[in-house]
Simulated assay, not measured.
Amino acid sequence: MKINILAGGPQQYLPNLNDYCFDEVLWIGVDRGAYTLIKKGIAIDYAFGDFDSVDESQYSMIKQHVPHLQRVKPEKDETDMELALLWAIEQKPEEITVFGATGGRLDHFFANTQLLIQPLLNDILVPIRLVDKQNQIMVKKSGHYQIAKESTYPYISFIPVTENVRNLTLTGFKYPLTNHFVPLGSTLCISNELIDDNGTFSFDKGILMVIRSKDEK
């Protein structure tokens, strides 16, 4: 099973969600994201949030269409997105894809990128990625990984999340590296590209944010 989550970010940043509608996928709406899924005709299974970003008629529609609805008080320690993601992780899916989590307010965007990091710190290895119409964002702990060329997302950036990333090695890339130290704040690994159909990246300490992106048409 795979889980897709739609948050309430600006719709102009969304990819075509129909491209992510598979047989074995469960959809979760977060706050206004639940209403967006309904309006797009996508069957929604669960919804989480305080729903302060929808009006009463929109919330009534959500109640009619969502079989499992969890409404919470606005005054809480976790964001609506965090509540939905924590529930999704507990289901132990093959992967979690989050839409509507970029664009708009920067505090929401940075909070959502932080939610990618927290599971790794607790040794939860469910693959989680943020996706919009120009980017795919994920985080990786130290290890050895294969990565395939995708024409739709030709640029690949590696951004240190922890203070030090040690012995970063990139093979199959336009700008290769061998056992390179990358400190927090470095822009060394921005906008790289694969020159082979497949490449690898590896490092033995730290956490990297991996961003696959494309230019806007």
Score class of each variant (00 low, 15 high):
residue 59 Y to P: 02
residue 29 G to H: 13
residue 8 G to K: 12
residue 105 R to L: 08
residue 162 T to Q: 15
residue 28 I to F: 03
residue 26 L to M: 10
residue 32 R to I: 00
residue 161 V to R: 05
residue 160 P to I: 02
residue 141 K to G: 13
residue 25 V to E: 10
residue 208 L to N: 03
residue 108 H to G: 00
residue 33 G to M: 03
residue 75 E to G: 00
residue 149 K to C: 05
residue 70 Q to I: 13
residue 75 E to Y: 12
residue 131 V to N: 00
residue 157 S to L: 07
residue 64 Q to C: 12
residue 91 Q to I: 04
residue 41 G to N: 13
residue 119 P to M: 14
residue 195 I to Q: 10
residue 4 N to Y: 11
residue 109 F to I: 12
residue 111 A to R: 02
residue 217 K to D: 08
residue 204 D to S: 09
residue 62 I to N: 01
residue 197 D to V: 02
residue 59 Y to E: 13
residue 97 T to D: 04
residue 83 L to K: 09
residue 184 L to F: 15
residue 97 T to L: 11
residue 105 R to D: 04
residue 71 R to C: 08
residue 133 K to T: 14
residue 86 L to A: 15
residue 10 P to M: 11
residue 20 Y to I: 01
residue 86 L to K: 14
residue 106 L to S: 07
residue 38 I to V: 12
residue 162 T to A: 10
residue 176 P to T: 12
residue 192 N to F: 05
residue 108 H to I: 01
residue 210 V to S: 02
residue 123 D to R: 15
residue 195 I to C: 09
residue 72 V to L: 12
residue 48 F to N: 03
residue 166 R to P: 00
residue 68 H to I: 14
residue 59 Y to K: 15
residue 133 K to W: 04
residue 92 K to C: 12
residue 14 L to I: 06
residue 121 L to F: 12
residue 187 T to P: 01
residue 186 S to E: 04
residue 194 L to F: 07
residue 77 D to A: 08
residue 2 K to G: 02
residue 79 T to F: 03
residue 153 Y to V: 00
residue 196 D to V: 01
residue 66 V to E: 02
residue 75 E to K: 14
residue 137 I to Y: 12
residue 174 K to G: 04
residue 157 S to F: 08
residue 143 G to N: 15
residue 2 K to C: 11
residue 32 R to Y: 03
residue 81 M to K: 03
residue 190 I to Q: 05
residue 37 L to G: 03
residue 200 T to Q: 15
residue 55 D to N: 15
residue 34 A to G: 05
residue 12 Q to V: 11
residue 104 G to F: 10
residue 98 V to I: 08
residue 21 C to H: 06
residue 79 T to R: 03
residue 186 S to N: 08
residue 62 I to A: 00
residue 155 Y to Q: 01
residue 100 G to S: 07
residue 15 P to L: 13
residue 167 N to P: 06
residue 135 N to Q: 15
residue 193 E to L: 03
residue 41 G to C: 14
residue 148 A to C: 14
residue 167 N to R: 13
residue 51 F to V: 01
residue 145 Y to G: 07
residue 166 R to G: 02
residue 207 I to N: 06
residue 30 V to P: 02
residue 133 K to E: 13
residue 197 D to C: 02
residue 194 L to D: 01
residue 121 L to A: 14
residue 28 I to S: 00
residue 4 N to M: 08
residue 147 I to T: 12
residue 67 P to T: 13
residue 42 I to S: 05
residue 168 L to E: 02
residue 179 N to F: 14
residue 91 Q to G: 06
residue 70 Q to C: 06
residue 160 P to R: 08
residue 199 G to T: 10
residue 106 L to F: 11
residue 170 L to T: 04
residue 92 K to W: 05
residue 184 L to E: 06
residue 197 D to T: 05
residue 117 I to W: 10
residue 77 D to Y: 06
residue 155 Y to M: 06
residue 64 Q to D: 12
residue 68 H to W: 08
residue 127 P to V: 07
residue 115 L to S: 08
residue 74 P to Q: 13
residue 181 F to K: 10
residue 16 N to E: 08
residue 138 M to C: 11
residue 49 G to E: 06
residue 202 S to W: 15
residue 123 D to T: 14
residue 8 G to Q: 09
residue 3 I to K: 04
